[in-house]
Design a binder for these strands. Structure first.
Lengths: 228, 228
DNA sequence: GTCTATACCTAGATAGAC
DNA sequence: GTCTATCTAGGTATAGAC
């Protein structure tokens, strides 16, 4: 269907200057046993493929090829296609969550609530669209996977969701955000707007930073309580 | 008489690469032939199923059962699964577009630009989530279908996209909306937020009208040019 | 136009050699 | 651990009767 991403031998990608899945070592994580490494390689490959093809068009054979092994060999490391998908989604949520939490740490003490919210929205969106296969994969997969996996995913994201719920609720409680809106709907709309950006965002059309900045600004300005 | 053209089955036409004859329903006339009615019934069934199962989990057998016929019989009316999907998406776009255009007509002459925009956003979101299988289907399908269908869909939605682009651009030009944001990104983010709502919106959690109102208000307040 | 029956093919999964 | 070979299910699509 999508010939472009179909034959991705590393050699061919190198010649074409096409993207190649980033390795764990490059992300500064500690190396592990060979089995661990292979598992990680498969996971990276899966994220790479799911991010580009979505759920239904991604074949185990694509993933195997990207991980430089035979399709059957995958089953030594993962029990099923579904387990692979679940694992990629789990890792994806974890990465966005981690990025946002890390960003929180770097925000100076006395920063106004609304500004904090703005910075975190910006960070969330940036993390999603800025060259991370796991987060790109998760956004594409979310609406596509069978209900069972969606449920599992919401369970994974419960803490993360709670973070946003807390931020918005506190903003309302303190009077920084307008009180006359249903924040749970707004929360979903904001997260949705960001998730959806994976589908249309192309780096060629402008830097991710700008998109993130404009979006975050619109959102907080639209929610900020105003004197009038 | 164009019923004559319909006596060639879609499958045969597809193989020959011949264009499909325009149908009465598309020309705003009353559908008459039995074939037309059956086709419409199948389309409704497809929208029903796609809206609930998404692309990859929807089976032709599901659609056939919903339309009260056998799977094989579908092929008298549609050349392939893909044609069916494409047709549902086309109809979905058309319905939202029509709803928004109709809403435009009802807005009083002197209404301020920003208020107009707010009403139209509200209408768009409401149309999407308010019990319309075609629009629900299209929102779910968008991120899931193969690239070819996505392209076809963007072509279908070009006019519609242009409508939003125009509204936002005019808003900026007249000074009603802030000038220092990239409106094409904002446009996609807004449309994305609304599309995504299909995934999470449940009538039990509150009326669609409220969600639409809060969202539209946040968006225009966030984009409105302000004196400060 | 719709049915029944079935061909065909893809892709997930398994078995056993090495 | 990874390979090759193969099984199997199930879903799209076709053929031909009625």
């Amino acid at each position: 269907m999508d010939e472009a991403a179909q034959q991705t031998s590393p050699a061919k990608r190198a010649r074409k200057g096409a993207p190649r899945p980033p390795r764990r070592a490059e992300r500064g994580e500690t190396p592990a046993s060979k089995s661990e490494q292979t598992r990680a390689r498969i996971l990276d490959a899966a994220a790479f493929v799911f991010a580009r093809k979505g759920y239904s068009d991604a074949r185990l054979s694509d993933i195997a090829r990207t991980a430089r092994m035979q399709t059957g060999s995958l089953y030594y490391h993962f029990a099923s296609r579904e387990e692979l998908v679940a694992e990629v989604m789990r890792a994806g949520v974890e990465q966005v969550h981690a990025a946002v939490r890390a960003r929180m740490e770097t925000i100076p003490e006395g920063t106004p609530e609304v500004e904090r919210l703005r910075l975190l929205l910006e960070c969330h969106l940036l993390t999603l669209i800025d060259e991370n296969d796991y987060t790109r994969a998760i956004s594409r997969l979310l609406g596509q996977v069978p209900p069972r996996l969606q449920l599992q995913h919401s369970a994974n994201g419960r803490q993360f969701m709670a973070l946003w719920r807390g931020l918005l609720r506190e903003g309302q409680a303190s009077g920084a955000l307008r009180a006359d809106v249903d924040m749970s709907a707004i929360r979903m709309l904001l997260l949705g707007a960001m998730s959806w950006s994976i589908v249309w965002f192309k780096p060629e059309n402008g830097p991710a930073e700008l998109v993130a900045r404009d979006f975050a600004r619109m959102a907080v300005d639209g929610l900020r309580a105003r004197p009038d």
